[in-house]
Design a protein around this nucleic acid. Structure first.
Lengths: 334, 334
DNA sequence: CTGAAAGCGCTAACAG
DNA sequence: CTGTTAGCGCTTTCAG
């Protein structure tokens, strides 16, 4: 009843050789000059029994799997969830498949994932690296497997990457805050080991300098990504008590902004009037929670399609040069 | 320099046969009674060159890929994003891998995805089906590939599934609203072709009946999932104008609730005092936006681990019976 | 204790 | 126009 249907079984059924069937089903029937009847016979039979080649065998034979690996730190972070969706849409247009992995912000797990993806013979990898040592890049290079970094990268290394100009974005945000008459701007960050975050910090600093404002360590709140939900209220409370004249707050990420606003609401602090707020990456929740907030918007969809294109290029065209794309941020007011 | 390292290359290097190396590396060295030195030699060499077997070849040979397919309608919906993360966590514990696909709410694409996953030789599939015809199930059964439905299912068919008791949940919500003195309860739904939504509608109806309240068609607002963001404001506006004495609103999904609240805020409608609100599935945004809202919480993490267990069972134990798990909702007040 | 050889399902030179 | 054959990299039976 449920007999496996394979190239061989088709060939036997039709009294042809595997080769013939293979050629025809891969569309090379005409160019190889097969008998039109044979072609039709094979095609008809194949679609009648709904034949699909075993992709494992096919990939093994061809040496390419038509699948690409994607590694992100967290899947359920809306930012990465959107990223995944955009990438999967772009990639599926090219009939590629995505094997999605989640490093959970753990550099060791991430490295292991790279090894596994490699052993699964993915044709390429897109990764938003959690690792900050560069081990990820070295490993990937040693595999000589095409890859592109997205959202996070290593400045010194001439790999493929697609990122946001985080420094400029932060500076622009500060500029705008200052233009709106902010005079004491706090910064809330997490994961300070990430280049992306460091850049935002630097952008903040240079924004302050441009405005002639003092750069003070005590204006920076640093929390742990792993525990920010719990930490945020206490940290914010003591901070705002110690710095009562802060009139603007810049959040390095959307989830930090969200957590802070949650705290403000719980404490009934009129945050929209007390502070000028600014953050990175627009989300639906912030849209409604923080009207007037300044947002450095990244062109995520463009970044994703660009990343896919670069990867595809590197896959097809072995000798493709490392390509670095830096997107400029758009500043918008919610 | 970058010579491919394979079983064969190791064997040649060590002057052993592929077989020997294979046995040893798969951990059967001792039980097969290999020379302890040989074992050590092989293991040491393999880890020195960081050997990883080609999983494609391995899978082809073994007839199982150690990967399972996951199909969800949308990846960036927080609900499914969380689902994916939970499933990926559970599955990675068992050293399985996830191939995630996104049907985009398109039944045709979904069916195609099933075919592709099958041809990729996944060992099993977890799916939150978009299809309502049952074609998905029939196809899956014809492949005789283990699968489990999650979140959405087909009542009549005795497949594996893990779902929420949606009807009961809706009834409980209505009960609670009534207990809080609601007397005219509106219902907002989308995707009414889905069993899950239908069940929620029925639960709503029976809740009303239990309370002796009239069941009126005009109290039901139905929008399109594809366009709800645009539709919601207008629909809600005319509805509330026509039904000014509505004192409670039940949303069939978290995103509908969110969209409505967004509208309320924009229009400066004091929704928390004007209406009693209720919806399905807790989200971070609703937590802060709608204090006091009633939520039917699904034990998503449990559902996911359960789904994985059932699937694993079906994979290992060919003859496993269809297993149906219905989780009871918890009603909580934000 | 170790190796030869067949096979997983498909592709693609090379013959004829 | 069609078939033979080797091979992708690994597992596993069977023989020695």
């Amino acid at each position: 009843m449920k007999k496996k249907i394979s190239l061989r079984s088709i060939a036997e059924e039709l009294n042809l050789s595997k080769t013939t069937v293979s050629w025809i089903l891969s569309g090379q029937g005409l160019s190889k000059g097969f008998n039109i009847d044979t072609i039709k016979r094979v095609n008809d039979y194949a679609s009648a029994v709904n034949y699909r080649p075993n992709q494992l065998a096919r990939s093994l034979s061809l040496g390419k799997s038509h699948s690409i690996g994607l590694i992100v730190p967290y899947i359920s972070d809306t930012f990465y969830a959107q990223m995944i969706e955009y990438i999967e849409q772009e990639i599926s247009k090219k009939n590629y498949f995505l094997t999605i992995c989640c490093s959970q912000g753990n550099a060791k797990k991430e490295l292991e994932l790279i090894h596994v993806l490699h052993s699964k013979q993915v044709d390429g990898i897109i990764i938003a690296p959690t690792d900050s040592s560069g081990a990820v890049v070295s490993t990937l290079e040693s595999f000589d497997l095409p890859f592109v970094l997205i959202d996070r990268f290593f400045k010194e290394r001439k790999t493929n990457y697609v990122v946001l100009n985080n420094q400029l974005a932060a500076t622009k945000l500060v500029n705008q805050l200052v233009a709106n008459h902010a005079s004491k701007i706090a910064l809330v960050v997490s994961d300070t080991y990430l280049t992306a975050i460091r850049d935002r910090m630097e952008g903040y600093t240079s924004g302050l300098k441009q405005a002639g404002l003092p750069v003070e360590e005590k204006l920076v709140i640093s929390v742990n990504r792993a525990t920010y939900r719990e930490e945020m209220p206490a940290q914010l409370a003591t901070f705002l008590q110690q710095q009562p004249d802060v009139d603007a707050i810049l959040f390095a990420t959307h989830y930090l902004a969200f957590a802070a606003i949650k705290y403000f609401i719980q404490e009934k602090i009129p945050y929209t009037s007390n502070y000028q707020l600014a953050c990175f990456h627009q989300t639906e929740a912030l849209d409604v929670l923080a009207p007037g907030m300044l947002v450095a918007q990244m062109p995520l969809e463009n970044m994703c399609t660009e990343a896919v294109h670069i990867l595809m290029d590197a896959i097809t065209n072995e000798t493709a040069e490392g390509k670095q794309v830096v997107f400029e941020p758009t500043i918008l007011s919610l």
